[in-house]
Design a protein around this nucleic acid. Structure first.
Length: 274
DNA sequence: TTTCAGGTGGTGC
DNA sequence: GCACCACCTGAA
């Protein structure tokens, strides 16, 4: 599969903090998605996506969010203000990936009060121990992200030492509830934003920010605008939003109503580069 | 040695 | 509601 460069860049997409299993290997990006090891390599005519090992049993174009009307969206966002204009130009190739609900839920629970290198290490450790071996590629072993039933076998202590730390309880509770209560993680796809958020926040360790990230990155709620400390700082410095919990939400709901998820990613990516 | 990092839940106003 | 704090951990 070839993706045109007009509205895609591997660096922008895989390094903007939405995913934790893609990394640059030599001159290409390599990542595990589902039961496949994918490679994205820049060529003259566009980015070539190939399956290195395993099976692509999902819609690859949809995973890469190819259906968005990028011209229209970018024109809309760039017209809003000078910051968005710069941010969209800077992160022009960002795509909001449509990721697996379970993997996104677990990895964003791990992300709370944490940083990207440590999150990546913890996710790799989980996959190595509880996932399925895919292949060895360029000297590195790759494993799929574990299923709920595989993670069910993990003890609290093992989750702790594998890099989850005190978040071990949140992971353990979430996985055990999913399996024991046979909770259907497909349900939020059909829910309105507020219902999906309540569904996710019912899991221990999931608050506003993690719930919003999962809704945006997995459940395709593309107007959701997750607010973390960086975004708070940005809203305060760029838009003069008052430093109070409700003020952020009120501003975001009003100002970033359309394409809020993309607006958040463009701005987030941009301010972190300054 | 102290502080901080891409939050959350518990506690006490 | 809102403010404050502990919490695994390791890098600066």
């Amino acid at each position: 599969m070839i993706i045109e460069k007009a509205h895609f860049s591997a660096k922008d997409t895989f390094e903007c903090g939405q995913c934790f299993r893609w990394e640059k290997v030599e001159d290409a990006y390599v990542g595990v998605v589902g039961n496949a090891l994918l490679e994205v390599r820049e060529k003259e005519m566009g980015y070539e996506v190939t399956c290195v090992a395993g099976e692509v049993d999902f819609d690859l174009a949809h995973y890469l969010d190819s259906e968005v009307p990028f011209e229209k969206m970018k024109a809309h966002l760039m017209g809003k203000d000078a910051w968005l204009e710069k941010a969209v130009a800077y992160g022009n190739g960002i795509r909001l990936l449509n990721q697996s609900p379970f993997e996104t839920l677990i990895t964003f629970i791990i992300s709370s009060n944490n940083n990207i290198p440590k999150i990546k290490m913890a996710v790799e450790a989980l996959s190595f121990t509880y996932g399925a071996f895919l292949t060895t590629y360029k000297g590195k072993d790759y494993y799929s992200f574990p299923t709920p039933s595989a993670l069910y076998e993990a003890s609290l202590e093992d989750l702790k030492v594998k890099g989850m730390g005190y978040r071990n309880l949140a992971i353990y509770n979430t996985v055990h509830r999913l399996v024991d209560e046979q909770i259907d993680l497909m349900a939020p796809y059909a829910m309105a934003y507020e219902d999906g958020k309540a569904f996710l926040k019912a899991f221990y360790g999931v608050g506003d920010k993690v719930a919003d990230c999962v809704l945006l990155f997995a459940y395709e709620k593309k107007n959701v605008f997750p607010v973390d400390t960086w975004v708070k700082r940005m809203l305060r410095d760029l838009y003069g939003v008052e430093d109070k919990p409700k003020a952020y939400q009120a501003f975001v709901d009003g100002y970033f109503k359309d394409y809020g998820g993309y607006a958040q990613q463009y701005l987030f990516h941009y301010i972190r580069s300054l």
